[in-house]
Simulated assay, not measured.
Amino acid sequence: MTKNTGKRRNNELNVNEIDIATEPLELETLSYDEAVKRFLADAQRRGLRPDTIQYYRDKTGMFRRWLVAEDKADFIRMVMRPDIDAYVDYLKATRGLSNGSVNTHLRAIRAFFGFLLDSKYIRNSPTKNYPLLKVRAGNIETFTVKQLRSLFNAPDKRTFTGLRDYTYMLLLLETGIRLSESAAILIEDVKLAEGVIFVRHTKNNFHRYVPIQTKMIEQLRRYLKIRGTCESNHLFVTLDGEAMTRAGLQKIVTKYGTQAGIKGVRCSPHTLRHTFAKLSVMNGAGVFELQKILGHSTMEMVRVYVNLYSSDVNDRHKEFSPLRDL
């Protein structure tokens, strides 16, 4: 508060006074729920993927439930940096989440407060420069060649669903595409003559073409003939001719993994993606080819694959091993 000295005040406000005079009244009254509503509306305006918006909705919702328990959910200005520390501790100690899982929550919360700060709904962000937790690079689960053979032998190809599921799993291994990407493939995206699949529903909104080779092309041709025409234009359909949902497609690998008796590895579409990357690296794929096919926006994950599975170091070690001369 400005002290009254009895002298006539200067009519011109100083910098700090101008900030006080012009700051939105919402800085003091904006509720957490209203802040989330504006954040999600902005995400929709920017055309973010529905999966991403749902991810933000889920993580900000879970954070809200924790804030309610801490009696801090009324106004967004009440959330301070120590609250973020306490929430991280809660996720780790009470919920038992790993550092990697905690980071998925932190990324959403950082994006949320970053939006509020950029939009001038808050003066300071409690997550500004807040670091992600360190995650030790562990082994990435992949199928062995023997497990792949068992997996692909499990579907009954004398049935439509068996043929469809076999084709689907083969496509995941051939291209390394994500589950969400595979669920969005349309008939028109399958370019058999060109030997590519157009991937439209990508994580980073950059559409791409992924190559397919002769065995995959022939299998898709067989499947498309038997699939025939139906109301849905999606590549993978149910017996009723409706588009397979993401949840339905996700269950396919699990189902046949169980039938094949595969143990010690999670049977999922993402494991087939990792397996594609592993086998591609072992067969000589370079980082740039792999990044383009997998659709990674950065080289970080691609380097992980190369470091784990490249045989170059092993091959070169045969040449410079100190034991050669003993």
Rank of each mutant, 00 (worst) to 15 (best):
E12I: 11
E12N: 12
V15F: 09
E17H: 02
I18N: 03
I18F: 06
D19M: 06
D19N: 05
I20N: 04
I20L: 13
A21H: 10
T22D: 08
T22K: 13
P24E: 05
L25T: 09
E26V: 11
L27M: 13
E28N: 14
E28C: 03
T29Y: 06
T29N: 07
S31M: 05
Y32N: 09
E34Y: 01
A35M: 07
V36Q: 02
R38Y: 03
R38N: 03
F39R: 01
L40D: 00
L40T: 00
L40V: 02
A41V: 01
A41G: 03
Q44M: 01
R45C: 00
R45Q: 08
R46Q: 13
R46F: 01
G47M: 05
G47L: 04
G47I: 01
P50C: 01
P50R: 00
T52L: 00
T52E: 01
I53H: 00
Q54W: 01
Q54M: 06
Q54R: 14
Y55M: 08
Y55P: 00
Y56M: 04
Y56Q: 10
K59S: 01
T60R: 06
G61H: 12
M62A: 13
F63K: 09
F63P: 10
R65H: 14
R65T: 09
R65I: 02
L67N: 13
V68C: 06
V68A: 08
D71A: 14
A73Q: 15
A73T: 03
V79H: 12
M80K: 15
M80E: 15
M80C: 02
R81G: 04
D83P: 07
D83W: 08
I84Q: 09
I84M: 15
A86T: 06
A86R: 14
Y87G: 08
V88F: 08
V88G: 07
D89H: 09
L91Q: 11
A93L: 10
R95Q: 15
G96V: 08
S98G: 13
G100L: 04
S101T: 15
V102M: 11
N103C: 12
N103F: 10
L106V: 04
L106G: 02
R107N: 12
A108G: 07
A108Q: 07
I109D: 08
I109A: 06
R110E: 05
R110K: 15
A111H: 13
G114C: 13
L116S: 07
L116A: 05
L117C: 03
D118H: 04
S119P: 01
K120N: 14
Y121W: 14
Y121D: 14
I122H: 09
I122S: 06
I122P: 09
R123F: 01
R123T: 07
N124A: 13
S125C: 10
P126R: 11
P126Y: 11
T127D: 10
Y130S: 07
Y130Q: 11
L133V: 02
L133P: 05
K134N: 13
I140W: 03
E141F: 00
E141T: 08
E141R: 15
